[in-house]
Design a protein around this nucleic acid. Structure first.
Lengths: 207, 207
DNA sequence: GTCTATACTTTGATAGAC
DNA sequence: GTCTATCAAAGTATAGAC
């Protein structure tokens, strides 16, 4: 429904420098607002005032609240993809890359919180982001599973490993740890807990 | 804030049979409504009409929406505790009990979805259920860690196991799998994935 | 215990001036 | 591109009759 509502492949947006900056600022404020109150819990007026705009002014850049949500999700996709491809980890090295990602997320409280709230909300049947999250998880699982399989081919990983299952499990662990970390950052050392997990996983599936 | 807003230890509620039934029905409808639209996304009027009441009629039983939320959370606590204590699993057997719990949750879509949505929402700083979830996770982690430690004492589990870390990891895996399962029940076989995880964990920490 | 009626607030979105 | 003004809708909560 909301996925690809702005085709990635379209021509580069021609906008004035000022307009581009406003768009960016709004986007950033939206991430923070979604994190603070969730999508349903925050108002456009609040986001607008955060960047020194009126509500109507904001709606000039994003015609509806749902458009703003879509833009936030795309932005996240863009960042994640870039970061993930940049790493270029292959085979079992994917685990190390994920450890780094989790470590890195510690510094992105807003983004992580925003996505934890949105992901939870999105399981509601009619939520505008449901389709996006569904296909996103599918994609991420597939990507990780593919690398694990490459690890099997290379002889790094034991052949009778259920790569699909492990992929889902890894993603689950990351999400679950994020939730506990957000609720209690002082008591939950997310990166360490995840490394604890991957270390055990590594020895279990390595040849 | 919201935790223990109705002290568990108070005298058994004296209410007419009809009144009790209404309360129960409302509570049940609320769980479903929170699951469908989240706490912020659903209206009291909708819940009320679901049980054949007017909105004002509902507010007679739960004076505010937040009171209703509190009651739902307490109910969940009650059910979980009963179910968990009933099992009476000790030491490493806690893993088997958790496998059963996850399997059982497959049939409680409403409850699970409701809690996934609420947990996500609750990471928002000002959410009325934040304190409840924070302390609940703390409690659950502590309970599981305690059983694991008992397993160490009994010689079932390897002595240099970080029981606290494993406890957080287990909870994280359960939550994360629930999220993926709710978004795509056909592609994500939650109980099998969890058993896949616990099986590996069991052999890793067993003596 | 339940209803109708209503007060009050907030929200997303539109119209049109500048 | 941004604003003011405004709308219509929906939400929580209260008052008071039955």
């Amino acid at each position: 429904m909301i996925v690809n509502s702005t085709p990635e492949g379209s021509a580069p947006r021609r906008r004035s420098a000022r307009g581009e900056a406003a768009r960016e600022r709004i986007l950033h404020a939206a991430v923070e607002a979604f994190a603070k109150d969730g999508y349903q819990g925050c108002s456009l007026a609040r986001i607008a005032s955060e960047v020194g705009l009126s509500q109507a002014g904001l709606l000039h850049h994003f015609p509806t609240k749902e458009d703003l949500l879509a833009a936030v999700l795309e932005e996240r996709d863009r960042l994640d993809t870039r970061r993930f491809l940049a790493d270029g980890a292959e085979g079992i090295e994917i685990l190390t890359a994920l450890e780094k990602l989790v470590e890195y997320n510690t510094y992105l409280t807003g983004m992580v919180q925003s996505f934890t709230v949105l992901a939870g909300e999105s399981t509601a049947d009619l939520h505008p982001a449901r389709d996006w999250f569904q296909s996103r998880y599918e994609t991420v699982r597939t990507m990780i599973a593919a690398e694990l399989r490459k690890g099997v081919e290379r002889g790094e990983i034991h052949p009778d490993t259920d790569c699909t299952a492990i992929a889902a499990e890894i993603v689950a662990t990351i999400d679950g740890l994020q939730l506990q970390w957000l609720l209690d950052p002082k008591k939950v050392d997310m990166p360490t807990l995840f490394r604890n997990y991957t270390t055990r996983l590594r020895t279990a599936i390595s040849t």
